[in-house]
Design a protein around this nucleic acid. Structure first.
Lengths: 221, 221
DNA sequence: CCTACCGATCGGTAGG
DNA sequence: CCTACCGATCGGTAGG
């Protein structure tokens, strides 16, 4: 009785129903698992077998979806940038022409920290730290998407530069600002309620954002 | 005649003379070769065989000097930090109590860029980007040395904070400043006379230093 | 997507 | 430090 009444199968291979075809589904699962493992252990230290095991596949099966391990890495990065651009667009949507350049930068930085350190934040760190493992053409592909992402920042930084709130040359300032933000992947630990006896008060992503603004920008005149 | 008159052997295995024992010599050669390769291709993508070949050893011979590949990685990082601390001390030596905090920070940043991007700059990038490949104890070892290096920065940043030249909390400011500087490893290309038709005017390490100061510090009142 | 498999490479070791 | 070697693992493939 209970067996027949059980609507969900918690073990074994998932059923493939008519309206829930695998299609890109398994592919997406591979990308997500790869992102997690590449982030945790690095690209070279992760075997395609581990990725397969994480999604319940056999060792050779990832190569049905991706010809080479490198293609999986590219897919992780492309998916991550796609999401990052989408989230950036959403974050900027409420902004109007009335918002100051400082406020617009705040929104961009806050969203960037979220993409780097928030939930589902395996993809972009992989992109930042596994660049070396891409082929030359693959780098071109990602560079184009990354340029799209950064393009939104440039007019904001230029306005701040003209304001006098940002002193350094805009080109170098952009590189250093992204460095300061991206490096947080190396040291940031989210404030956890689980570890109440943490040594130091952990900063929130809002704290990081305010600190970054205070570091980079002069007070508005 | 000419053979007997030839004092140097340019080919073959180097002679081991009485007063030129190998001792740490070969060990140092392994560390230097490992630093170069780890920097170029990453730790996991570099085989101990390649390192051996670079110094003219047989595939198994590095393990006479280092029990494990990981120990070689630790040695690269420790050697790099030792040199970095030494260079930082030398750079700071000419400073006197009369120098402003801004000037002291300038010296620290300029030296840091040199350690990251100047000649013989394979070691520190390896330390920054291969942290993940260390064991827990190894990380402790390096963390201690790194704390020594950063300790010199803290009073300088504190003074700038009290001055009002540095606005952000000193702790977060330090992390973000190091991020901005360390990230340069990812994008910096030295200005090369060899490539006169370079697309953009390449920045020198002095340029980077000034840009960093302009980005982080307010004008002295 | 699984089964069954291959060639290559890798970290590491024994014994001198 | 070399010689000779081993077990393990890995990316990738043929064939269904």
């Amino acid at each position: 009785m209970s067996e027949l009444a059980e609507p969900k199968r918690l073990r074994g291979r998932p059923r493939k129903t008519e309206d829930e075809r695998d299609d890109g589904n398994r592919r997406q699962a591979l990308i997500a698992a790869a992102a997690r493992l590449f982030h945790q252990k690095g690209y070279d230290a992760t075997s395609t077998r581990e990725i397969a095991a994480q999604v319940g596949m056999q060792p050779g099966s990832p190569f049905y979806h991706f010809g080479h391990k490198q293609d999986l890495l590219l897919a992780v990065m492309a998916e991550g940038m796609k999401q990052a651009i989408e989230r950036q667009r959403t974050a900027c949507a409420p902004l109007s022409g009335k918002d100051s350049a400082r406020e617009r930068l705040r929104v961009l930085i806050r969203n960037h920290f979220d993409v780097l350190l928030g939930p589902d934040s395996d993809f972009i760190p992989v992109m930042l730290y596994e660049w070396r493992s891409l082929s030359a053409e693959q780098r071109q592909t990602i560079t184009q998407i990354k340029d799209d992402y950064e393009a939104v920042w440039i007019p904001v930084l230029q306005e701040l530069h003209h304001n006098g709130q940002l002193q350094a040359r805009v080109g170098l300032a952009r590189l250093m600002i992204f460095g300061a933000l991206n490096w947080s992947v190396q040291w940031y630990e989210p404030p956890s309620a689980a570890k109440p006896a943490a040594r130091t008060a952990r900063a929130s992503l809002d704290d990081l954002t305010e600190a970054a603004l205070a570091l980079f920008l002069r007070d508005t005149p």
